[in-house]
Design a protein around this nucleic acid. Sequence first.
DNA 1: CGGTCAGTGTCAGGAATCTGACACGCATCA
DNA 2: TGATGCGTGTCAGATTCCTGACACTGACCG
Lengths: 147, 147
Amino acid sequence: MKHKAEGVDLETSLGYLLKEASNALRSAMDEVLRPLGMTVTHYSCLELLAQRPGLSNSELARGAFVTRQSMNVLLQSLERDGVVTRPAEAPVGKALPARLTARGRQSLEQATAAVRSVELRMLAGLSDDEQAVALRVLRSMVRSLRA
Amino acid sequence: MKHKAEGVDLETSLGYLLKEASNALRSAMDEVLRPLGMTVTHYSCLELLAQRPGLSNSELARGAFVTRQSMNVLLQSLERDGVVTRPAEAPVGKALPARLTARGRQSLEQATAAVRSVELRMLAGLSDDEQAVALRVLRSMVRSLRA
DNA sequence: CGGTCAGTGTCAGGAATCTGACACGCATCA
DNA sequence: TGATGCGTGTCAGATTCCTGACACTGACCG
């Protein structure tokens, strides 16, 4: 179909652009993670566990922006594949603290390299100043929206 | 569970923050659109049609970041509700140009008001300068990621 | 002590979305 | 003319993800 009537004011909307950028990032990450047999949520889970060992299923779910139920099925498969470990019984309450195995850390290493290349491409052509402003603006948006 | 070990470097990652902001925006929009019986995709479709009348199903799908199949089921329900119209036969090729009805414009008007309040809240506390930089940065990111 | 509340893990069930595939129309070019 | 490529609408199947609900634990407070 023909290209026509481009951009009335959608390209001027921060909201729309936010969605567009987020979508482009997700697509790009999916693309580089697929050869590794990973999804974005999959990778997010591993990255979260690497940075904060002992996170519970619910906490991982919030961090990866999915429901506890979805994260749970993911964790079960990760546990089955020997990538993460959870104790059989909760040390306190009902929360089961998850941890990466050696194999998990290795798996994450590959994924991190792939994702880093995407992030570098995304930030290409942006000055440190611009990145800093973008960081501040995004943080402010999140805070304001949650209010 | 207890609050602990906050922010190793997730909060410093533009990628994660992008996802977080996009998610917060979507949640906030969902919340104000639900009383109107609308979803975000629903609203996006109407907004797209208002700004660019005659868009085809596939074009709407790309604009709303869903598949043609998903957009088609939405369009069918919108057509059934008398919110949009499509000709019975394609004037050219196979693409059916969709248009808002009077009722559709009225429906959109309510939604726009609701969404505008969210966008205002999101941008609260941000200078025009910061918004301009954010706009430029996001555009650059999208362009780089698509390359 | 007894009550409520918040947070968690888990079990179905269902809704939304995507993947895969096919036929058709138009444009381009040999 | 015919052939290839691209975009589109549409059908069916499968997957993913979420909504709703239940039981349990620990913390707080009357």
